[in-house]
Design a protein around this nucleic acid. Structure first.
Lengths: 371, 371
DNA sequence: ATACTATGCTTTACCGTTAAAGTCAACTAA
DNA sequence: TTAGTTGACTTTAACGGTAAAGCATAGTAT
């Protein structure tokens, strides 16, 4: 292994001090023209690249952000990560990616690992409020920034947040089903976190406002994974009289529910209408395109990265912590019965990108994604 | 900001030397019982956590792997990353995730960045063979491990590889279309990299073996993105007589092609059959479920992580570099005309996970994903 | 009693970099 | 002239940790 090029070596070969080399590389102005040129030449000759680890040790900044999300397989989080990456990479920050697999213990382990690695900040979609609040609260005093995305449990923790309005998500989805004339509307609950509870709250609000009857058996425990939706729908199908519409806590659960419906020999949306939330990738191209409530993951990711970087940056913005809300909006596709057929028009406003043109309901952020 | 707890502080409060603390924490056996206990107690009391940056500097190991993939939005790569994460995380390694956005310049910048950060190894799905071969070759001499995944351009570069048999991918897809009785079979080429060229080669081989006529206009330039497939299909649709089947270089391109076909008022598979490659997430649930050639991304990711970690680990396995091949297999769904209807049976062998049961063709690795 | 060997620590040096505080010659101001 | 200022470096210390070598003290072999 060729010995790595260090400032020491450059200094040695040139007969100057290491500090001189350091100063040249950091553009300090107290180095003479000639020396500067000689150093720069040597740097180029040896292809020197600074050792970021050593630099991190002295500067006490790693220029690295930790990202902890619950599910790498869910396009929703991946799209947020893509947004994060755009901003972070442009500003010279690296992303240390971790998955908690929806497991609080792994989440804790990953946060601890990130802390040991001295990341400058953490972007977290937290599994729940259960055990890790203490850890998160301590991050601030350790000089580690924190932005919570998507899920904002841990109300005690002081940090920036980038979330959507989950009550509104539930209202939009449910009102839409009501407006489709559905009478027996069920809800597949998410996991027991405020984030999901707010969607359920929006569900109930919409029913109340429209004076639509609800029944306790129509609200069933589910979760955020496809398998959760599948199981929950199985339970719902056993309830008589049968429901004619379902708002699932998110898209994977909605897809699981659709599978259960098909398996029972029923049709979507004729027999049962479905609305999800989160606008999963390819949701517009599904066998029955999935109606959903959408908000920009790209924007959510970018906003989170910006907030975090501004807070941990050179001028640590002493402003109060912000909660940025990405507004949700309804995307009507076939699964809710809101479109006559799969070959109908767009469910959304003007979308002229080639991949979205004509015939096929386009994905809400197809533009954003190609930008 | 509370002053961070360091070994120095622990040593100070206990009146022992820093080295003593270090030895206790590293389980060296030359520290007495009593002292060891006192140190451990203090460590627990102060909640000490070692500074990984400092440790990396002396040990010259960061326990971090860099991952560079061309497209964060493509489920294919994300699933590989999930596989990587499983192994890396279990072995105490972190993943520094970068996207090259299919841009050789950004790929280069990211690899340089990873090198500065002293990652122990890099897992790369390289954009092309154009300009970065030099950089990759140098990695070895810098003590940075390299595993190329999915795309194995850069034949000169000595490293481990985990790829699929791309010629076979093309043959499987094309033979299947031939067996469906299709006569005018087109191919939407991938980008100009060997990886894609091999799929085209498999396409040609299959035609030759089955003595099926081919025409030059039926092989069109495309790419790996949805928009590429869309544009390529537009061109194909202008060719008369019209083709009755298409093998697209990968699934996103196949989906783009389907969009173009629908937009032209034609049906899949009745008018044109489609087969892709890569088994994109939700491909089984599309409006017309997509026939594809699949291989396990989970296995690919895990294998890559294992190879890399074994090579850079304590006993640097002096064996020759390996090329692990993940075998591809055909997944027949509706888009190729291989199934009578969307409510047909599984296209794959026994799959009894709840989310896959009955009625819906399951995804090839649905088991693997839930493991 | 003398030399040898553990045992249990501490000292010193180093990883590669930056920041703060010298140093020293040449130049300027009074 | 004499002190004061620049300009262009160098020296020293530090970041937080690990490894190698050093050094008492006590115990064992002869």
């Amino acid at each position: 292994m060729a010995s790595t090029t260090t400032m020491k070596r450059i200094a040695g070969e040139l007969g100057v001090s290491i500090t001189t080399v350091s100063k040249v590389l950091n553009n300090r102005d107290d180095i003479g023209h000639a020396t500067r040129a000689r150093v720069l030449a040597k740097v180029a000759e040896l292809g020197y690249q600074p050792n970021a680890v050593a630099r991190s040790l002295t500067l006490r900044r790693t220029h690295t952000l930790g990202v902890v999300i619950p599910d790498l397989m869910h396009s929703f989080f991946v799209e947020i990560v893509a947004g994060l990456e755009t901003i972070a990479s442009a500003r010279g920050y690296g992303l240390l990616l971790c998955s908690s697999n929806e497991d609080p213990a792994k989440e804790r382990a990953e946060i601890d690992m990130l802390r040991q690695r001295q990341v400058d900040g953490i972007i977290l979609a937290s599994v729940n409020a259960s055990g890790n609040t203490d850890l998160l609260q301590r991050l601030g005093s350790l000089g580690i920034g924190l932005v919570m995305i998507d899920r904002d449990d841990h109300p005690v923790v002081k940090c920036d947040r980038v979330v959507t309005d989950d009550v509104e998500v539930g209202r939009l989805a449910t009102s839409h089903l009501i407006e489709q004339g559905r009478k027996a509307i069920a809800h597949i609950l998410g996991p027991p976190i405020v984030h999901a509870k707010r969607r359920a709250e929006g569900f109930r609000q919409a029913l109340r406002e429209h004076k639509v009857r609800s029944r306790a058996e129509w609200i069933v425990r589910g979760g955020f994974m496809e398998a959760d939706g599948y199981r929950a729908m199985k339970k719902l199908l056993a309830v008589k009289p049968r429901v004619d519409a379902v708002f699932a806590a998110n898209d994977p659960a909605a897809i699981g529910a659709m599978k259960a419906i098909w398996e029972a020999g029923l049709r979507v949306p004729e027999d049962i209408a479905i609305v999800g939330a989160g606008d999963i990738a390819l949701g517009d191209l599904l066998r029955v395109p999935l109606s959903t409530v959408s908000w920009s993951r790209d924007q959510q990711g970018k906003e989170a990265a910006r907030l975090l970087l501004d807070r941990i940056g050179p001028n640590p913005s002493p402003e109060k912590f912000q909660s940025v809300v990405i507004p949700p909006r309804l995307i009507v596709r076939l699964s809710s019965g809101g479109l006559e057929s799969t070959t109908d028009k767009h469910g959304t406003e003007g979308c002229d990108a080639p991949v979205c043109a004509g015939g096929v309901a386009c994905r809400a952020d197809c533009h954003a994604r190609r930008e």
